[in-house]
Design a protein around this nucleic acid. Structure first.
Lengths: 114, 114
DNA sequence: GCACTATACTACCTTATCGCGATACTAAAC
DNA sequence: GTTTAGTATCGCGATAAGGTAGTATAGTGC
């Protein structure tokens, strides 16, 4: 499957639903913050709670959602659970979105200059 | 800003919020369906209503959301309004997600084989 | 101006999901 | 086996978003 062929007309409605579901997993500030932390390397739930200030239950829930979506993988290590990014696509998706945001910012600055 | 530097640790919480908002725009089946149609070329609201079977009010609303997010641009042509994709990033984001989905499918098939 | 078509806007209801607190589970340590 | 730290889950209230119907606005042709 080549990149530019994939999205043109070949997606079934079921695939569209699934894609939407995948995007919705990334459409949450808390989850992006967790991903951002995990981009620096694997971490346990407790470490992420400490670093982000998000409540434990909430962190656990979001990590579960990210793992269920296939972005993260879990590993039990003693009485801790380690999460790490297991799909490099995460980096690409976030990079694209970030570039897009900076471009938008430039565009808006341009508009203001008029 | 280089691609692989962007998302590592440099995003502020405000940028994360904005990124989440952008992803949430794509986290909707109806909007992905409209994007899929528009990937074949520009189209009017009426044409999109016809092709997708989605109600006019709903189509108009979603097109408005996509345009507000900077994915689409509007052009009034007579008594019709034409929409078209104005940000090529859309193709990349959707391609990445589609490739990811097919990979996931393969992974799941592999798991079933065990 | 008047009818007709195309698009946008508003209000309402429904559904989904977030964050939180409390609680239950799991594994190590004693 | 009991305790303790770490993690997961459940139930709740609140908030946000989607879909629809109805209405308003804008352009076209007579």
């Amino acid at each position: 499957m080549k990149k530019n062929e994939v999205t043109k007309l070949s997606m079934s409605d079921a695939q569209v639903d699934e894609a939407a579901r995948q995007f919705s997993v990334l459409a949450e500030s808390a989850r992006l913050i967790l991903l951002r932390e995990l981009m620096a390397g694997e971490a346990s739930v407790g470490e992420l709670v400490e670093r982000t200030g998000i409540k434990q239950g909430t962190v656990s829930k979001h990590l579960g959602i990210l793992a269920a979506a296939g972005f993260l993988e879990r590993e039990r290590r003693g009485n801790k659970v380690i999460y790490r990014i297991c799909d490099p696509v995460v980096y690409d998706l976030c990079s694209l979105m970030c570039c897009r945001l900076s471009d938008e910012a430039k565009r808006r600055a341009q508009s203001l200059a008029d």
